[in-house]
Design a binder for these strands. Structure first.
Lengths: 209, 209
DNA sequence: ATCAAATTACCATATTCGTGGGATTGATGA
DNA sequence: TCATCAATCCCACGAATATGGTAATTTGAT
């Protein structure tokens, strides 16, 4: 018997889901609320749900913020996001906030059920569209520039900068003069169109150099 | 009719898969090879497959390296990784190399079929275990430190540093004197035990401050 | 064999940074 | 109420950085 909670502001949709889930012998809805605020309030005196189905678009506190609070208080609760949107910003915000699964609302109830079971068994259910976004996150980027423009030596210098070394320290590490480092840095700055170590480090750590 | 290719070194397993897929009216196996090398050779004179089922553990060139080459020559080919391993290093290497799906070899053939269909329809099929790893990648880390120690103002200054601004520019942005920035920076350095902008930026971008 | 690029190195100079001292004002909490 | 801390500002000085030159080798590719 898996204990569930539902947080969804559209009354009809919430009741439909609850109706369906209550029919399933493997589930038990211990809470069904229309806002994060009331959910967080009621949960104090309720059985602790194992899985929370949560809408991402809620009046008042957003599902994302709600998740953060919920996860803070009850880290073991699994959260399955439900949403009509498949845009990547929302997806990654939700995942970074601790969602364990992400379904589109147009999923049929049977899929909702199997997704809950999958989540309960340690999986991470996602609608195909969502999975595509998530996988796409790792895909090799079209790599805007051609091979980063930087030479091998310049890349070594960049590594030194990222490691927080001074010019002198980089020189020692690469067994060349600090003057050479200065030359390389000048060229790196020109190529990357930056004017400080800080910007190089940022580029190196964020984009790709 | 979806055109498929199989790259798998274990003859029996490869033949079993091919046998099953050939029975399906939606599929057509245009290639079935036991190594990346022979696959890349034969594909030149073969119909171009739309989806390649590829083992990740291959003698000779690894599936990962093979994928990179394949993706380089035929960027539109979708790759579905097949493996017995679910360790995160392999998963993320494969995804970063351009895999569009990732199945464990213990998946039943029916699941393999539905996964191919899902991939063909723009999804990104994953075994539940794999999905868990992928989602886990985004999960909030156990956040080692206690609330980062930095005050709100100090965090704003850090943001300025990460943005590559000079002290003066940060001062202008926050409408306070550059001397105040210097004070904040001194305190930030003490709290984080660092001695340069570079280290702060690195900490901010890598760990969490 | 030749030319372009990469790597190495040096000089000069203005700016920025890192760090040591202070000091004042509020807000917060014990 | 008193102590603490965040936030604001100032001074000074040596170290490091940013940017402008110039130029000798090495290396790679044509």
């Amino acid at each position: 018997m898996i204990k569930l909670a539902i947080v969804e502001d559209v009354d009809e949709f919430r009741d439909n889901i609850k109706g369906y889930l209550d029919e399933q012998p493997e589930f038990k809805c211990v809470l069904s609320e229309n806002s994060i605020e009331s959910f967080l309030w009621k949960i104090k005196n309720s059985e602790l749900p194992e899985i929370v189905l949560m809408d991402i678009e809620l009046p008042g506190m957003s599902g994302i913020d709600g998740m953060k609070i919920l996860k803070g208080k009850y880290p073991d609760v699994e959260i399955l996001m439900l949403t009509v949107y498949a845009d990547s910003r929302r997806i990654f915000e939700a995942l970074c906030a601790g969602a364990s699964g992400y379904l589109l609302k147009n999923s049929p109830f049977e899929e909702l059920k199997s997704s809950i079971m999958e989540l309960y068994n340690g999986g991470a259910p996602m609608s195909p569209q969502i999975a595509r976004e998530v996988i796409g996150y790792f895909k090799p980027k079209p790599h805007n520039k051609k091979e980063s423009a930087l030479t091998d030596k310049e890349k070594e210098v960049v590594v030194g900068l990222v490691d927080g070394l001074s010019y002198q320290q980089i020189a020692d590490r690469l067994f060349i003069s600090v003057e050479t480092i200065r030359s390389h840095i000048k060229n790196i700055y020109k190529k990357l169109h930056v004017h400080s170590k800080a910007e190089v480090i940022k580029k190196s750590l964020k984009d790709e150099i």
